[in-house]
Every structure is written in structure tokens, then in C-alpha cells.
Design a protein around this nucleic acid. Structure first.
Ligand SMILES: [Mn+2]
Ligand SMILES: [Mn+2]
Ligand SMILES: [Zn+2]
Ligand SMILES: [Zn+2]
Lengths: 147, 147
DNA sequence: CCAGCAAATGCAACAACTTGCAAGAGCGAG
DNA sequence: CTCGCTCTTGCAAGTTGTTGCATTTGCTGG
């Protein structure tokens, strides 16, 4: 089964109609295997299909996010980032000083969610968190520089 | 000391010049004692000073946020929300189903930050988190309705 | 009080989304 | 295969937020 056919099947299972615009958006994200801004998804899609309108891409990204096929995340700066969601869920530590974006496994975050469930009965939905702060390297550097 | 004078003093301590636009923005947020959208801050400010431009308010909100005098938060839907930061830090649990916004004390969140520090040396900066999910009431309701 | 510099502001253009509406296309029933 | 319902799309206009630049204004030092 080609990637395109897989995407079509995924769309059907999620209750969407299979359209070329949606397939193109999905392929762009799956192929990139990284965080992409809406604008770069638009550019990507338009290389193959120049007629697709911006609003269709924005709407498609929203729909895929609602169906939990992709994540939508606001890192500190710049545009909102979209990413194809693989099975294993992950999160990010974003350094406000040097801009580094490190990966964070789900364990600690799942622990946090469990705390919220135990303490407040709240069923947190943390699919792809971006935690802002200062990374280990930057902390070390500023300490060395006389704090 | 009036609230305005306190605000002026706070501005000076944060290294800003004391201008009427900044004071008006601060007073709007302090007086509201709640989350306000940028647009409603603009409306508020313009009731007193119609000449102040939108961009000045946006820039002021950004500056106050950088100086950690106010929080800037994206709840699931709608505009970005700004809030005057009181001493005691707090967070929110936002129900994606019924829209309820509950308060969350800093304890659980501080525990999460400590985990990140211990496990990754990352110094997380979580001033005013909005955690999305399903609230206790909605979970109970959908369970009762035959899951 | 005054001069001078840097910060702050207004304005207009721009960028990043969002929405209402009419036209087009996927898909299930027959 | 065709019909028709409903989901999707394109387009244009509207929001929300950002930025470059010329001008104004707060503040510091004399
Ligand atoms: Mn990611
Ligand atoms: Mn709050
Ligand atoms: Zn760093
Ligand atoms: Zn709820």
C-alpha cells in the first residue's frame, strides 16, 4: 500500500471524505517528519496543486488536528507548528534563551496528567506539549558567567 | 499611594518609562482582575484615551509580559488572554467539552517543573498554564450516558 | 530649566489566520 | 451508473496581531 493509499484509508476511518487537498496536506506532513508551519504546508501543497486555496489548507489542518491525526503547537516564537503524529507520543522542552527545542518522552508528562486526574478528576489531554524554560546548557553557562 | 502611582513605580522598577498608555493598560488589567483579550484592553484604554493606537497596546502587552508583570495565555478557543499577575501564582484546567475554566493551584505544576529539572536539568518557566482536557463533571456525565 | 539620547508612539502596510457564502465534488442509495 | 445529500472548496472580506519608519516624548545629566 502506498503512503497515499494509507492516508486515504486513515481519512476514511476518521470519517472524512478523501479529497486531493487533504491528501496533499497529509503527505506534506508525513513526508516532512518534522514540525511545519501552516505557511510552509501551503507552499508545499501548492507546488503540486497551485489552485488549492490557503483557507482550505488552514481548514484541513484544523480538521486533522480535531481528528487527532496531527498536533498543533505554539512554540514560544514564530508561527503555530503542525506535525504528523506517530504512535509514540512525545513533547518538547523549548529554551527561551538559545531557542533549542529538545524532545521529552511522554513519561514525565503522563505523570503530571495522572496527578491532575487524582487531585481534580480532570482528564488532561496533553498530546504534544511545548514547555518553555531555560535549558541545562544555558543554565550552566549563565552560572559560569558569574550568575 | 494610589493604584496609578503604584503602577508607575512598578514600571520604573521594571526599567520602563512611565507613559500614559502603559499606565492605562496596567490599570485596565489590574482593575479587571480577570483574563482580558487584547481587543477588550484596547476598548478599555480608548474609553479614556481614544488616540492610543492598537499597536501601542499590543506592544505594551508584550513588554509587560516580558517583564513578567502580566501573563499571556492561549486558552483553547478565542483570543489570547492577558491577566495581571498577583503574588500567588495559579494555573487553569480548561474543559474542551463544556468550556469550563477552573483554577489550579501551583503545587501540582511546581511538582511537574521539579521533575523536569531533576530528569533533564531543564528549568521550566510555567507562570500561567492552561491545561486542556475533560473536566470531572463532563467525564461523569458521558459515563452516565452509557459511556 | 535645557539639551540630547533612547525609548515609546502613531500610522500604514503587512502577515497570519478565520468566516460567510455560493459553487463543486465525494460517496451511499437505489 | 445516476441522483442527491452533505461535506469541501474557492473566493473575498474580516480579525487579530506584527513591523518599519518617521516623529514625539520621558528621562538623565549638566
Ligand atoms: Mn514534536
Ligand atoms: Mn488566570
Ligand atoms: Zn538554551
Ligand atoms: Zn466540562
Amino acid at each position: 500500500m502506498t503512503s497515499r493509499e494509507e492516508s486515504a484509508e486513515t481519512l476514511r476511518r476518521a470519517g472524512h471524505r478523501v479529497t486531493s487537498a487533504k491528501l496533499l496536506v497529509m503527505e506534506a506532513l508525513r513526508h516532512a517528519g518534522d514540525h511545519l508551519s501552516a505557511t510552509s504546508v501551503i507552499d508545499q501543497v501548492r507546488r503540486d496543486a497551485p489552485h488549492v486555496s490557503e483557507s482550505t489548507v488552514y481548514r484541513t489542518l484544523g480538521a486533522l488536528r480535531d481528528s487527532r491525526l496531527i498536533s498543533e503547537t505554539t512554540f514560544g516564537h514564530g508561527e503555530v507548528a503542525y506535525e504528523w503524529l506517530e504512535e509514540r507520543s512525545h513533547h518538547h522542552l523549548v529554551c527561551s534563551q538559545c531557542g533549542a527545542v529538545d524532545e521529552l518522552s511522554d513519561e514525565v508528562v503522563a505523570g503530571f496528567a495522572k496527578q491532575l486526574s487524582d487531585a481534580h478528576g480532570f482528564n488532561a489531554d496533553l498530546q504534544h506539549l511545548a514547555v518553555p524554560g531555560i535549558c541545562a546548557r544555558c543554565s550552566r553557562d549563565s552560572e559560569a558567567a558569574g550568575e
